[in-house]
């Protein structure tokens, strides 16, 4: 497997130093957040609606800039990143959303291939990589179908395939199972967990505490834009089980 190593080995791919984000004067979506996520680590992010989960993810993939503090993602300071440098960073960060964000007029294969098209991957290589990726999420037989003909779980697997086909160093998932039933939820979460075992740093924002119990990973709980709890993997299991 190809893997780019541009940040120094051992250097954490996500580091936040006293980061605040405010959309309106005096109202903070995130306030004084400092944290470090290590390479290959799997982190659950929880909190009530408006706690700052989505804002934190948006800051990591440079959709937003911090109002205060510094964010270093894969060795790049997001606060100082120019508009032209953002696409290069995003090619190294896969993102999955609750609403899948698939293009209805393109086939499954074309949707997944988007991530390879933007970097000018030759057509044959792109087709092979997309096929392998779809095979790994169990959808190779559906590659010529359009998203509308797929179930919710299948659509999320396509979105996951698109996020992972470029072998990103970080995978961010914002409520990836929010629209799925329990069985499909586990299917998707197993695929995400598998990415982490291959060395991808994974951050999953979720409301579903049962996932924290089941997977027993590091657990960050946000409250009012601040980190209320940061529990390591094992403690996460105990704490999740207690709720």
């Amino acid at each position: 497997m190809r893997r780019r190593m541009t940040s120094a080995p051992g250097e954490s791919p996500v580091r936040l130093y006293h980061v605040s984000k405010s959309y309106m004067a005096g109202q903070f979506a995130l306030q004084d957040v400092s944290l470090e996520i290590r390479r290959g680590e799997f982190v659950f992010l929880t909190g009530a609606s408006g706690a700052g989960k989505t804002t934190l993810l948006e800051l990591i993939f440079a959709a937003e800039q911090p109002s205060e503090g510094q964010i270093v993602v894969l060795g790049r300071n997001v606060a100082r990143l120019g508009a032209r440098a953002i696409p290069a960073l995003r090619r190294r960060v896969g993102v999955v959303f609750q609403d899948f964000k698939l293009l209805e007029d393109r086939t499954v294969e074309e949707n997944v291939r988007l991530a390879l098209d933007v970097i000018g991957t030759p057509r044959r290589e792109a087709r092979n990589r997309v096929f392998s990726m779809l095979k790994s999420v169990g959808l190779q037989h559906r590659r010529f179908h359009h998203p509308r003909s797929l179930s919710g779980g299948e659509q999320q697997r396509v979105a996951l395939a698109r996020a992972l086909v470029n072998e990103p160093e970080i995978l961010l998932a914002d409520e990836p199972t929010g629209n799925l039933d329990p069985e499909l939820t586990l299917e998707i979460m197993d695929l995400i967990a598998a990415a982490a075992t291959r060395g991808t740093t994974v951050v999953v924002a979720t409301h579903d505490h049962s996932l924290i119990e089941r997977y027993g990973k590091r657990w960050l709980r946000l409250e009012g834009g601040r980190i209320a709890e940061d529990l390591p993997a094992t403690a996460g299991v105990e704490r999740g089980a207690a709720r």
């Binding site: 993939f61 508009a83 032209r84 696409p87 290069a88 960073l89 995003r90 090619r91 190294r92 993102v95 964000k101 698939l102 293009l103 988007l114 991530a115 933007v118 970097i119 698109r162 470029n166």
Partner: peptide, 16 residues
């Protein structure tokens, strides 16, 4: 605009 949002997500440059 949905397509453009998705292209931006996967790292498409302004030129692309």
């Amino acid at each position: 605009r949905d397509e453009l949002d998705i292209l931006a997500l996967v790292g498409a440059s302004r030129t692309f």
